[in-house]
Design a protein around this nucleic acid. Structure first.
Lengths: 352, 352
DNA sequence: ATTAGCACTCTTAACCTAAGAGTGCTAATG
DNA sequence: CATTAGCACTCTTAGGTTAAGAGTGCTAAT
């Protein structure tokens, strides 16, 4: 069902006013704030319709209306009046991130700090999946007989390390041979590409009986395995305490629980990784009971056209979307730009 | 001023009852709960004295008494009735940590999770200062001309990496020479020891004009520099929402702010790193206005007699000390034990 | 189609009151 | 002389009542 112009106008006014005040919105207020020039009585009729279609609802008989999830969704799906971020904020982000230097983890961490402080909401920045990134160098270090640490340096300065158990008769010299081999033959490929190669070789190797060769492959396979170690940089958790009352205390607690369960969190954010652009998850809509009353706004950052990670904020459903959406969007864009620069060796003349 | 037996008894009863109920404690209650066999009237006299000396205080005229920071401190400084942790919990910690394998970061992270879940409080585990740990291997990787990543693997599997800018004419082959040299000559020393050596060599080198040699030293110096990268594993933040009302909301918010300001947090915990054993910081006592009403219990974990890191919890001042102190203490002990095992190559026959 | 008017509902804040918890003091007690 | 019973007093809290006010939906007038 679509809304006609007047209905949409009323709905938008209700949403905006509710975002601003957090209070149920009455017909009087809508009459004043909208530019429809209708009397409250007429507005009431329209609001009755909107309630019928459950875009808005009444907390109780004599209260004004509050937008439902459906109402918010309609508001968000319509092109809305974004306030473009002031130039100086954009500059601040750029310069602040440039200062960090060509170090991806620090860049992401800093981006998270910036985003939370300009949005006044909890920010999340998730590290890239390593799968589609090329790697630069691999090293195996014998921690002690039977135990090896593999260190995989990705372009952009991400490092992935892993402790791997191996046959006890593998020596440092063997490890050096392995790593030399891998560095020579596979360097510059993505992890995914390497994995495919290795699996092929393993099939062949099974027919041979070269023990050492098989060990090498096993070691390589483990090192390049898709690691479950994507990190999430979380900042600004204290913003969740903005205008809160006892009622949402238990809901806030759920948010904090969610933030600590990284696997759940990743699942939530992965939902949106596929979408090409900014996406909004309304907790009430989905079956994320942890997020009722909260909304997640995410925007992917990309490298060479692939979305590899996410920039997000978590805030109350009644947050100031016009301000925050551009903030998330811009942060993701700048991050993509900087990533591009790091990977293309541009604009970064080293650290101070 | 010291308390006599009876005064101490009354104070303890007040503290315990307050911890249990969170409510001001009246003379009736003390008369019942203490084993003094005195009438409420007599208790009232004693409580008046304790109030005089400000061990306890009255929220208002007709209310019972609440322990002050001084009262809590007296309670904590006296040897108190610890409930030793049940055997099975100790076992659970040990086995759960053993399962992680000889990987220090993961071990610490897991320890933090365990501690928060058995204490029902926010837990903090701070990673070791690398300064007094021996290192195993160093590697330099040329990210691109003029930019090197150094990777320093410590015993126990900590990795410290850093992006360092260098002269543009340093090549991969040079880097290999550098790292070989360092690995041969300094391996097995602590970072602190290496730094001292390097500074000495730099003094000598200044008089020479071997450009390459000087570069190598600069690179080494940066790599072994005391990094500001001690991490803190935080878990169980949602426990802060236990029995909370609007009054402490703003205080809770301060705690969350503190948790995100890692530098402040480290300063707080470093206070206690020197003390040989478990220590308790009452927020009200110190000038940590972020922590009024909260208390930090910390216990250091050690390697070869040196305290290298901390295990802590943050909880309300009225928490169950008898249960939680042993939990913190035990976790730190087990961690020390496991560290010892990792470093001595004992008890760890690799991963599954 | 729009709106003024109106009766109705429900929440909220303010006020009052009674109950109850706890105190400190005094005088009695063993 | 330490202890305790008794009591008047204070202050908080919960409950109940009330009045104000916000907002509604309906009806009838424009």
């Amino acid at each position: 069902m679509n809304l006609d112009q007047r209905q949409a106008d009323v709905l938008f006014t209700v949403v905006k006013s509710y975002i601003q005040s957090g209070l149920p919105v009455g017909s009087r207020t809508v009459a004043r704030k909208s530019n429809l020039n209708l009397s409250p009585a007429s507005i009431r009729n329209i609001m009755a319709d909107l309630t019928e279609e459950s875009y808005i609802e009444q907390p109780h008989t004599s209260a004004g209306r509050v937008p439902t999830a459906k109402g918010f969704r309609y508001y968000l799906d319509s092109k809305l009046d974004m306030e473009p971020l002031p130039r100086e904020i954009e500059q601040k982000i750029k310069s602040s991130l440039a200062k960090v230097g060509p170090d991806l983890p620090r860049t992401l961490s800093q981006a998270s700090k910036l985003l939370s402080s300009i949005s006044n909401q909890i920010s999340l920045v998730i590290t890239p999946s390593h799968q589609n990134i090329r790697w630069k160098h691999i090293d195996f270090i014998l921690l002690r007989p039977g135990l090896v640490m593999s260190i995989l340096v990705m372009e952009g300065g991400m490092v992935q390390n892993k402790v791997i158990s191996v046959d006890r008769d593998i020596m440092t010299d063997d490890l050096i041979k392995f790593s030399n081999y891998l560095n020579e033959h596979y360097q510059g490929k993505t992890l995914l590409q390497v994995r495919v190669s290795i699996y092929e070789q393993m099939k062949i190797a099974q027919r041979q009986f070269n023990q050492l060769y098989q060990s090498a492959l096993r070691l390589a396979r483990e090192s390049f395995e898709p690691e479950n170690n994507r990190q999430v940089y979380v900042d600004g958790t204290h913003y969740l305490f903005q205008d809160t009352d006892l009622a949402n205390l238990s809901k806030m607690r759920e948010v904090f629980k969610l933030l600590e369960e990284r696997s759940k969190l990743l699942k939530l954010l992965d939902q949106t990784l596929e979408s090409k652009s900014l996406s909004i998850i309304l907790g009430q809509e989905q079956d994320w009971e942890e997020l009722s009353d909260y909304t997640v706004i995410s925007s992917p950052y990309s490298l060479k056209g692939d979305n590899i990670g996410m920039v997000s904020i978590i805030g109350p459903t009644r947050m100031n979307y016009s301000r925050i959406i551009p903030a998330v969007d811009l942060t993701a864009r700048i991050l993509s730009q900087i990533l591009h620069d790091i990977y293309e060796y541009k604009n970064h003349e080293g650290l101070a």
